[in-house]
Nucleic acid binder design. Structure first.
Lengths: 173, 173
DNA sequence: TTCCTATATTTGCATATAGCAAGTATATAC
DNA sequence: GTATATACTTGCTATATGCAAATATAGGAA
C-alpha cells in the first residue's frame, strides 16, 4: 500500500450505495409530499420556492446563481411559477434592469404544506431507528457532508427532478 | 412530550440537511466524473448504462421498469444512447415484439472510466474523515438507508439530472 | 384459418428543463 | 453623448418525460 491517503475500493462502493440509498429515500419523501398536493409543481419548481422562502426575494440573476442555471432558465422557470400564482415579478425602480422575484402567499402556503408532510414522513423514518442510534446517525451524516461539502453550490443543479412531463394528476405509479 | 413515537422537529430539519448535503456532494462527484469525459452523456443516460452494466441486457419494458419511467421514455432514451454508440438494440427472434438492449464495448468503457474517476474522488473525500470515524459513518448511512429503504424502486426516477440541455463541451461552470 | 384480444414497442404531441446566442432595455464610464 | 457593461428576455435546439394512439406480433377462440 504505497498511498498514504485512504484508497478503499469495496468500501467506497458501499459508501456510495449507502448515501445513494439514503438520498433516494429522501427524494422519494420529498416527491410524495409534493404529489399529495392538488397544486401541480415539479421538484425543480419546488426548489425555486424553497430558495425564495429561505433567502427572501431575489433578482433573476441571483436566483439563477443559487439554482446553478443560466439566467434564461431562471426567467422561464419564473414564467411557469408566475402562471401558477406562486411568485410575483416586480421591476426595481432604482435600477429598472433588475427584476425581483418574490413568493406569493400561495407559494408560502405550498412550502408549509410540503414541509409539514415531509416532517411527518421523516418522523416516520426516524421512529424506525432506535433512539440510541439517532444521534450517532445524524452526526455521521454531518461528518460525511462536511468532508464532502467542499462542493460549490453551483455544482448541484441538482438531482431533484422526479417528473418533467405534464401534470400527473393520475398518480398512476 | 405526549407522543410515544419520535416526533423531532429541528432535528428532522438537521437530518434532512445532512442527508441532502451528503447526497448533493455525491451527485456532484458523479457529475464531475461524467464531465471529465470527452463522451457527452447526461446523468440520466449514465444511469441507463449503469443498470445495463449491473443487470445485463434488458428488454425495453424491463428497462423502463428499472428506471421508473414509461416505456416510451425508455425507447427514446435508447434512441439517444444508440446515436452515441453506447448501446445496441436487437429484436428478439423468438418473440419479435421484444427488443433487447445491450451495452456496446464503448458503453462498458465509459462506465469503467466514470467508476474509476468516482472512486478517486470518493477516496479524496474519505481521506478527510478520520480513519476511526469511517466505519461508524458508513454504518450510520446504512442504518438510515435501511430505515427509509421501504421505498419502491419506481419512486426514484430519481434525482439525477444535472444537465438536460445540449452538450456542455465548455464545462464553463 | 380467421378474428379478437393482449402485449411490446414506437411515434405524435405537449410540457418542463436547460444552454447558447441574439435582442432589448437600462445604467455607467469616458 | 456615445460606447460599453449589465440584467433580463426571447428564439432556437436538445434532453427528459407522460399520455394517447399507432404498429407489429403473439396467442387464443370461433
Amino acid at each position: 500500500m504505497p498511498n498514504n491517503s485512504y484508497s478503499g475500493s469495496a468500501e467506497d462502493d458501499e459508501l456510495i450505495d449507502a448515501v445513494l440509498a439514503a438520498s433516494r429515500a429522501l427524494v422519494a419523501v420529498a416527491a410524495r409530499s409534493l404529489n399529495e398536493l392538488e397544486e401541480d409543481v415539479t421538484l425543480v419548481q419546488y426548489r425555486v420556492l424553497v430558495e425564495l422562502a429561505a433567502r427572501g426575494p431575489q433578482f433573476v440573476a441571483d436566483l439563477a446563481d443559487i439554482l446553478g442555471v443560466i439566467p434564461s432558465t431562471a426567467t422561464r422557470m419564473c414564467d411557469r411559477l408566475l402562471t401558477k400564482g406562486l411568485i410575483t415579478r416586480k421591476r426595481s425602480t432604482s435600477d429598472r434592469r433588475l427584476v425581483k422575484v418574490s413568493l406569493t402567499q400561495s407559494g408560502r402556503n405550498l412550502i408549509s404544506q410540503v414541509t409539514q408532510k415531509r416532517r411527518e414522513e421523516l418522523s416516520e423514518i426516524l421512529s424506525r431507528i432506535s433512539p440510541l442510534e439517532r444521534e450517532p446517525v445524524l452526526n455521521a451524516l454531518r461528518t460525511f457532508a462536511d468532508a464532502a461539502g467542499t462542493v460549490p453550490e453551483q455544482e448541484w443543479s441538482l438531482g431533484w427532478r422526479l417528473s418533467a412531463g405534464p401534470r400527473e394528476e393520475s398518480k398512476s405509479q
